[in-house]
Design a protein around this nucleic acid. Structure first.
Length: 565
RNA sequence: UGGGGCGUCGUCAAGCGGUAAGACACAGGUCUUUGGAACCUGCAUUCGAAGGUUCGAAUCCUUCCGCCCCAGCCA
């Protein structure tokens, strides 16, 4: 089907990063080339915050005829795993981006980076330090006091070369030596106080195996990897701003052919969730969620399993903008982007989450009619489908109230409502069990009120339903926000104290209209009047499982919440 | 008490000396066989504060206040 354009204004996207790219282009920099990169560390799964960066980097490349590489920043074997690189690739692809042949790993540059390090030593700009980690920390000084130079700072080039060669050869223990840049221990910018370039880590790397026992640090590897790839605009988040002088120092000192410009923007924050890899990992490891792809997680795979579409996430990322001030986006905007997309493409079906038997006393026993239901009112080409109607149906428990409050206009004793695509029914009485719970509702129907007859009788409310004998059983998982507070853990020792105990409700006795018999995992539907749902990978024919992606906007729920009853 | 950033509606965010875009949220309303969708209306005399420059300032200057980041052999 044709997806209508979103109502977003079509002005040229004009965030400050794109403005810089345009200026550089106009100034004739980089030979008119635009090259960006998305540089994840394969130590966890991607989340919605990464999506912002992905959309920015790949988006700019696309808009300015440039390229965007996918480069894994895998310089720390202690934390990285192949499992993550595959998952990250899948997520970027799913979001709709293509890195072409621009797939790289910082580990592919280890030999060249080593060469750069040797060059720095020859330039007298790097030295092997033999202080312990604790000593280095002590020598670094504090935010307000300058650091002290290491006693090893003035080793000769020859000695440094010899030591560094032996570090690589595996002659030393972890932590016994590091290679440091020789910059300025008194700098007000701590990153410039002789930052560590290489550390010894006798540990297998997920790609280079046992080839190396020394590994480069982020600042060194990142700056030079960008240069090696000819990246023109190296976009990263705000916390790296203080690193920019160092980023530039490497490229200047080594007089690299291709210089790149680092630009920092504010990372995305979302209310009612956490975004740090450490916290997400904690939720997974402690079994507080079912895994990285738990539909309650803000991870890309979690959102995917939840039923989000790549389009809705991309639209969200365009709408939130790119700036330098700290921000906390309202999840409502993410959900708005989702509904906007799903409304246009999700086929409608009728499903009853909490069944209440409804019997039409004056409807012939054994009779079955095939009513025609519209598949998608937003898309006439989606056509219609038959839905069986009979004497015994199920309706939603919450659609019947014995003593309805003023603003409730669904079914109640004596009330008439329309059954979607069917007839008008009037409630004659309700049957209750010993506990006083309504177990069955009896109605009479008006044979001349079939849906579709122009000018036919009307009712104040329309209910969704399912024919008891024809309906399919299914499990439906209802998700709510993972955390109860906007900023989990704020003012608390443990962010997990804010976990929402009701973030998942599993309903086992739901009833679906028969057309859903062949629903495939990943399939997205709108359950009329309830929300958007998708088929979970746990689902199989005969044992359907749905996830609630997001509810429909709901005026009634608002009234109930507002306590206006 | 060091360095680097940032402060425009509840939340994002335009604006770049000429008199406060837009989105979400919220509140009303129209329409409706989804209390959905769509559509209409309202929602910052004011831009962290105070001074100053100017015919004119959210935009320039000064001072002050507030928030974020930095002391990994993490990224």
């Amino acid at each position: 089907m044709e997806v209508r354009n979103s109502n977003r204004d079509d002005r040229e996207t004009t965030d400050f990063v794109r403005a810089i790219v345009r200026e550089d282009l106009q100034a004739g920099k980089n030979g008119g080339r635009v090259a960006t990169r998305f540089p994840p560390e394969p130590n966890g799964y991607l989340h919605i915050g990464h999506a912002k960066s992905i959309c920015l980097n790949f988006g700019i490349a696309r808009e300015y005829g440039g390229t965007c590489n996918l480069r894994f920043d895998d310089t720390n074997p202690a934390k990285e795993e192949v499992e993550y690189v595959e998952a990250i690739k899948e997520d970027v692809r799913w979001l709709g981006f293509d890195w072409g042949d621009g797939l790289y790993f910082a580990s592919d540059y280890f030999e060249r980076l080593y060469g750069y390090a040797v060059q720095l030593i020859r330039l007298g700009k790097a030295y092997v330090d033999s202080l312990t980690a604790e000593e280095i920390r002590a020598y670094r000084g504090t935010l307000t006091e300058p650091g002290k130079e290491s006693p090893y700072r003035n080793r000769s080039v020859e000695e440094n070369l010899d030591l560094f060669t032996r570090m690589r050869a595996g002659e030393f223990e972890d932590g016994s030596h590091v290679l440091r840049a020789r910059i300025d221990m008194a700098s007000a910018n701590l990153n410039m106080r002789d930052p560590t370039l290489y550390r010894i880590r006798r540990m297998a790397h997920h790609r280079t195996g046992d080839k190396w026992c020394i590994y480069p640090m982020y600042d060194f590897a990142h700056s030079l990897s960008d240069s090696l790839e000819g990246i023109t605009h190296s976009i990263c988040t705000l916390e790296f701003e203080d690193h920019r002088p160092l980023y530039d120092w490497f490229q200047e000192t080594l007089k690299v052919e291709r210089r790149s410009r680092q630009i920092e923007f504010a990372r995305l924050n979302l209310n009612y969730t956490v975004m740090s890899k450490r916290k997400l990992l904690e939720l997974v490891q402690e079994g507080l969620v079912r895994g990285w792809d738990d539909p309650r997680m803000p991870t890309i795979c979690g959102l995917r399993r939840r039923g989000y579409t790549p389009e809705s996430i991309r639209n969200f990322c365009e709408r939130i903008g790119v700036a330098r001030r700290d921000n906390v986006m309202d999840v409502a905007l993410l959900e708005h982007s989702l509904r906007e997309d799903l409304n246009l493409r999700a086929p409608r079906v009728m499903c009853v989450l909490r069944p209440l038997r409804l019997i039409i006393d004056n409807y012939p026993e054994g009779r079955v009619e095939e009513l025609q239901a519209v598949n998608n009112p937003e898309d006439p080409s989606a056509g219609t489908r038959p839905v069986p109607f009979s004497r015994e149906l199920y309706i939603e428990q919450e659609d019947f109230l014995e003593n309805p409050p003023k603003k409730f206009f669904r079914l109640a004793p004596g009330r008439t409502v329309r059954l979607r695509y069917g007839y008008l029914v009037t409630c004659t009485n309700a049957v209750k069990n010993d506990k006083g719970e309504v177990t069955e509702v009896h109605c009479s129907y008006d044979p001349d009120s079939l849906s579709g007859e122009a000018g036919g009788p009307r009712a104040k409310a329309t209910l969704h339903w399912v024919s008891a004998a024809h309906s399919l059983p299914a499990e439906v998982r209802l998700y709510d926000r993972l955390f109860m507070s906007e900023n989990p853990g704020e003012g608390k020792e443990d962010f997990k104290a804010d976990l929402n105990p009701d973030s998942l409700k599993v309903l086992q006795s739901c009833r679906m209209e028969p057309s859903l018999a062949g629903a495939q995992p990943g399939g997205r539907y709108q359950f009329e009047r309830l929300g958007y749902f998708c088929v979970d990978p746990d689902s199989c024919p005969g044992s359907l499982v749905f996830n609630r992606t997001v509810t429909l906007r709901d005026q009634w729920a608002k009234i109930v919440r507002g306590g206006a009853l």
